[in-house]
Every structure is written in C-alpha cells, then in structure tokens.
Design a protein around this nucleic acid. Structure first.
Lengths: 303, 303
DNA sequence: CGTGCCAGGTGCCTT
DNA sequence: AAGGCACTTGGCACG
C-alpha cells in the first residue's frame, strides 16, 4: 500500500489529467487513470494507476498487488449513486431481471443486458439485439439505486403518467460513470422541410402556374403543409412526405381537402396534391377514388 | 513482472471465473478480473488482478507497478475488433464526430458520446440527453473499426438501403466488450391485442347484441381489427387503439368502412366503431361527421 | 400540459 | 423485398 504522501501525489495526477472514469468490474470497484511522469531523459512516460476502493473509498492499490475486495455490489451501487447525484451518465452490465409498469406493463426474465442511465433521467435497457431498448424510461425520470449487498436494484420513476422501471441485477459485471459534455446539435438534411423548400423555391415543380400562399395553414382538420392556388385560381392543398407514402398519407390529405371545401363554401374547387418520392399501389388507388393528385418529388434532387 | 508460471496461473483463474470483461480506459488497455484464492483459514479470498497489455497483448502487470502504455487508440481498436469478430457487444465512450448518409444525411460535430455496437449489427450513438440515439444504424449492419494510431474510426454500413454511419473519435476514454447472452423475451401487457381479447371475451362490452365474426378481416383498404354483426344484422367494423386516439385513427376506420360498403353492395349498412380509452376533440368531431361511433375501453380493466 | 404530426421512425407480420 | 400497421412509439412545435 502506498504511503500518504505517495497517495496524495497520485491523486493529484489523476485530477490533473481529468481521466477519472470510475468503474466497477465484478465485485471490485476501482478507477484506472493514465498519468504521465517524467523519466530520466526528460520525456513524458505514461503511467497506469489502479485506484481501488476496498471498503474505504479511493484507497490506492499498486498494480499487481493482490487485494481483498468486497465481493458485493455495494461499490457498484455507490458509483451509480454518484452518477445520479452529480449528473453523470452511468452504464451497467450484468445479469438482471426487468419489470415495467406504466402506460403498459412488462416483465423480462433473467438475462445479461446493458443498462444506461442518463443525467436527463433517461433509462435504457439494451439486450444483445435490436436498435430499440428492450425496456426503457423516457427523459425526466428520477433514478434510484440501492443494494442489499447481494443484488443491485435500479429504479426509475416518473409521474404524468405514473411509470416505474425496475432493474434487478443478480450480478453486476461492469459499471462505469462518465461526465458527458455534448454541445453540438445534429444537422440533418433530407427531411420534409427540405422537400417543402424545394417547392417554395420553384413552385412550378408541383405544376406550372402554382402559387404558394401559406405554409402550415390552419384548417379545422389540422395544418396544411403548403396552401396555394393554381393557374385557374383554384385552391390547392399540398401534403408533403419525405418518403414513399401509404394509405395514411392519402387520408390525411383528404381530411384537409374536405375540411377546406367546407370552409371555403361550395363554389371553390379545392385540389389536393400529395408530394412524395413514390406511392404504394393501394395509396395510389385511394388517391384516384378521392380525386387527389400525386407528384413525385424527393427531399434531395439526386434521390 | 510476474514469471511465466505465475502468469499462467492467473490466466487460468481468469478463465475459471469467466470474469473476463476487457476494457480500455484512456490509453491503457487492460482486463480486470476477480478471482478467488484460498487463504490460510481455508476461506475463499477475492483477489483482483489487473491484466494490462502494453504493446504485447495480455502481458501481466503486478499491481502498483508503473507501466508504460501506448498512449494510442490501437488497443481500443483491437478490443472493438475482437468484439466484432467474436460476436460481442462493445461500448465506447469518448469525444467524437459523427456522420451519417443514407435515407437522409446528417453531421454531428465534436462531442462526448457513448457508442454501443451490438453483435446483431446495431450501432447506437448516445449523447447525454434523450431516449433516442442521436445517430444510429439498424440491425444487420457490418461494423468496422480502424485507427491510424491517432483517431479511432468506427464505420457501420448496410445495403438496401445503402447507409453508412461514421464515428470518428479524437479520443477514447473507455472501451469495454461483453459476451452477452439473453435468452428470454419480453412479456408485455396492455397492448392492442389485450384490448381485442377483452372484446372477444365479452362482445357485449362493445354493444349488446354484437357478434364478432372475424379478426384481421381483409378489405381492399386493409385489415379490419374486428369484423362482426350487430343485433339487427348490420355489418360492424371495429378499429382498436390502446391509447387516446386522434384524427388519424378516425380516418383509418373510415377507410375500412367505406371499403366494406363498396364490397358488400349498397343494401348492407356498415357501422364503424372506434374503441379506445379516450378520443381527442377534433377526432370526436370527425367521428360525428363520418357517422362513426366511439366506445371508451382500455386494454386493462382498471385503467 | 394536451393536440397534432413528422421521423433516417422501429419492429412485426403477411403477401 | 415491399406493404401495411402497432408502438410504453419519441420528439417537436403550437395553442
């Protein structure tokens, strides 16, 4: 065991490097950091330190030494608790059982999963398959962690609606907590907004003579993506979809058209345009039955 | 440094315990395992080992020893490569830049994120906020990792449609790989199917005299949730929703009703029922306009 | 906060 | 593979 002076020095080194991701493998809670010291030639030498808390937190153990550790989930629990308190992101991996009750209710028997707890109150339970978490809790939840020394339990709760997620680990193989800073937002192209801009920039793509008058025009049935008039002065309703459309999009357009027909009185003709890269067979038939029109156009010129 | 015999013994201990989650913090790649040895009193004593690969993989370093490590992403890359090859789940945390191109296209500037690579080809990029990953790749993708010794790059690609996700780490703070086994499926209640079963069990909840004849009955407009007849012999179309419904659900029901009216010839009356816990104002008005009916019912009796 | 609607929706199932 | 649809949909923008 290092003496007090040595330990203090290392601790400083850790802080200096901000490398302090704390972790927990199996029943040993520890932090591994890479500090640099200066060798005889004056060059920086990376040095690995293993800080292991064995009962007394943050005690320093020199590597290679065999140390007794508490074979419990206490340390794991402490790490996650720290993450929750200090607004850090936590990941846990281990064998667990999951229960959820709220808008629906679910049970998931024992299995190995990755659990992610975000500082915004999000909880994710990921199995080895699928993009969607097998269980989750949306942002805004309050996380809790507790242990009876045997199992470790993560509870995530929210109100409105009342929902509870419970993850009970029978063993925790890994815990890590991270201080996350992510300042930038995603920049996305190829959206419906891009499609809208294409038409507003050159309305004749829809049809020669088309003149947009408003976007998001309100009707009793909802907001119309683009509202305008054609060359003959007829009202035009345009519904935009960034991808191939099915019957639902046709119905949506139809709602707007019918709503406007009532609004604008009988004498005005309201034409309905569905604009999308392509349309399914059934949707195409529906368009025909409703007297609606289709224009093939994608959000990006090349696709 | 331990001698050959000692190292061999430890390696055996590792395998015996299957505690071998390998990890990488900062620039030091290592594996921490907890083995048990027998003390003088005959009791099992948990022992922590730090296996650190410094250039030569899997070399064993005794704790407390200061070891040079390669301050590069090479080891991290090697770990992820192992995960990809052997069908393990990998998590990475660090400062990265993300680009995506496929159905749409996106760019995400430098920031700290958690990346999860699943053995089924799923890739997830999670920031500190939100339930949804900021970027992702669906199951079925092929992951690749490479490094030029400076940055570490994860590439995930699929075809049909052609989509590429690129995550470029300028620094990797943490890597861990896990052998995941999850045998059990989620058991979920409170679904639309539960709502359907409630009605099939006691059709009079919908309306006294109602007799279900078919579920998922096909029409030119799609499959009807429940099809049947009322006490007067009129055709009944039931659309089920597990939660509060909006205009889209009304349109959906309307499509089925109109489709069946054509199918069954003019003399048959087709009634349309929307069954859900509740309905929005606008949807309620739409129901009225269409001559459709609403029945308040939830998937679970108590809600 | 509820309503309405887009989303790189995802997932499941059927043709 | 494409179509149709449910989903603890999630997320955003607006009243």
């Amino acid at each position: 065991m290092a003496n007090g002076a040595q330990r203090s020095e290392w601790t400083r080194a850790v802080r200096g490097f901000h490398a302090g991701a704390r972790s927990d493998f199996g029943s040993c809670s520890f932090a591994v950091v890479v500090a640099s010291s200066v060798n005889g030639a004056g060059g920086a030498v990376p040095t690995v330190l293993l800080l292991c808390s064995q009962g007394v937190p943050n005690s320093v153990i020199e590597s290679g030494e065999r140390a007794r550790v508490q074979p419990e989930t206490t340390e794991a629990s402490r790490l996650v608790e720290t993450a929750i308190q200090e607004g850090l992101l936590a990941t846990l991996f281990g064998r667990c059982r999951v229960e959820y009750e709220g808008r629906a209710a679910s049970t998931l028997k024992e299995g190995e999963r990755l659990v992610v707890l975000k500082p915004d109150g999000t909880a994710l339970v990921h199995s080895d398959e699928g993009q969607k978490p097998v269980n989750w809790q949306p942002p805004g939840c309050t996380h809790e962690v507790q242990t009876d020394g045997d199992s470790l339990v993560v509870r995530s709760r929210r109100e409105t609606p009342e929902e509870v997620l419970l993850v009970e680990f029978e063993s925790v193989d890994h815990v890590a907590i991270f201080d996350v800073t992510d300042d930038h937002d995603l920049s996305l192209t190829g959206t419906e907004e891009d499609l809208r801009d294409r038409i507003l920039e050159d309305p004749s793509i829809l049809e020669p003579g088309f003149e947009p008058r408003a976007t998001e025009r309100q009707t009793p049935a909802g907001a119309v993506d683009i509202y305008g008039v054609d060359g003959d002065g007829n009202a035009v309703v345009v519904e935009l979809k960034r991808r191939r459309v099915g019957p639902d999009a046709v119905s949506q357009l139809n709602r707007y058209v019918e709503s406007l027909e009532r609004d604008l009185h009988a004498e005005t003709t309201v034409r309905g345009f569905l604009v999308a890269p392509s349309v399914t067979e059934r949707a195409s038939r529906l368009l025909g039955e409703r007297g609606l029109e289709f224009v093939s156009l994608a959000p990006s010129p090349d696709t």
